[in-house]
Write a protein that binds this DNA or RNA. Sequence first.
DNA 1: GCGTCTTGTGGACAGTGTATACATATTCGC
DNA 2: GCGAATATGTATACACTGTCCACAAGACGC
Lengths: 215, 215
Amino acid sequence: MKKRAPEKPARRGTYRHGDLRRALLEAGVALAREGGPEAIVLREATRRAGVVPNAAYRHFASRDDLLQAVRSAALAELARAIEAELAKTRRAKTLEEDARGALRAVGRAYLRFALGESGLFRTAFATPEDLGLGPNPARSGQSGLNPFELLGSALDKFVSAGLLPPERRPGAEFLAWSAVHGFAMLILDGPLRPVPRAQLDAIGERVIAMVEKGL
Amino acid sequence: MKKRAPEKPARRGTYRHGDLRRALLEAGVALAREGGPEAIVLREATRRAGVVPNAAYRHFASRDDLLQAVRSAALAELARAIEAELAKTRRAKTLEEDARGALRAVGRAYLRFALGESGLFRTAFATPEDLGLGPNPARSGQSGLNPFELLGSALDKFVSAGLLPPERRPGAEFLAWSAVHGFAMLILDGPLRPVPRAQLDAIGERVIAMVEKGL
DNA sequence: GCGTCTTGTGGACAGTGTATACATATTCGC
DNA sequence: GCGAATATGTATACACTGTCCACAAGACGC
């Protein structure tokens, strides 16, 4: 027994965790879901993973690094929610109907996610500390699997249906995205808070309609 | 009741500060201007005011309380920026010209403030801890001195000019506000970051145009 | 088998928000 | 006027955070 280290610390089974990185990431996502970006605190994540605080630094360079990983996961979940909504609205007779249906589906899913998973949503758009470093998680990712591109293909249908002049297509994502995103943010950040939920949904529909008409 | 003469600021012997609340508030605003809401740390504010950390608790119930005060100040500054821009665009021949000019002035001032004073802007819309408590700083304030009402009066002109059906006037602030606010947020939070500034301005104009057309 | 690399541990430090107890300047009741 | 009450700032302390460093325990290549 060369062990001079007193094993008084309750050894929690396996020294090696197996996949600590994933465990920390999942803990971070759970925290974000419950309380937004500021709720994701490194020590709590390690606590939930049953590991000592510093162990996190073997997998993430800093708290902000973990934050960014959670951010990407949150964006992916948003994209999945949008895709699911799109999948439910496939049948359409005319090109125009198809295009309008797709855009409205994206908008509705976006707003529903923002309100229903506000913690994750706010995390997905948390201001990063390291500005402009690495690929932008909101716009990268495999094709069709991020909110930006999903919105883009809906707008492509608008062009195909003759509802949007091709010369106005570039940058159109930003217009549509701005309107819906801003609406969500105004709700979450307070300015629209005293407005009751039912009325909120109605205004949301009008926001989407504004986009359709004003693009 | 003798007014304290502020001839010697930060003098060691001056036990009474004079107007510590204002000093803390100003320090908080300065911090927010430099680094956004998360940069406003209570201890640093007291340090700048030349006072011990706990002194802040005689004037603010918590860090979040100070945060909310700074938030109100930031919103007031935004309102002032909008008013200044409006004052520069008073001459218009037709009602329509006047209405469009006002709306565009509000939008432009809003976006310029968001980009130029990003720290204050982000602070103005920081998610509050205490949800739905007290009057909403973004919508209260003396008449005409908050962004919400300034935008509202611009929209009233739209109705007067016959550009917006009266039945669609209620809630129209939310549509316009959402679009411009969302655009600002997408820039500040990263998703639009790789886009160069000049192109950003162009898209901003298109966002405002979308609002005009789609309301 | 052994040496090396990876991953988790233990302990420490500075910095934060905040509570409690204390001290002093200002104000107020008489 | 003057003493007490109150308002305001100080001193000390605590729990909590992110992060650094040295070290140990398992895994792995040879």
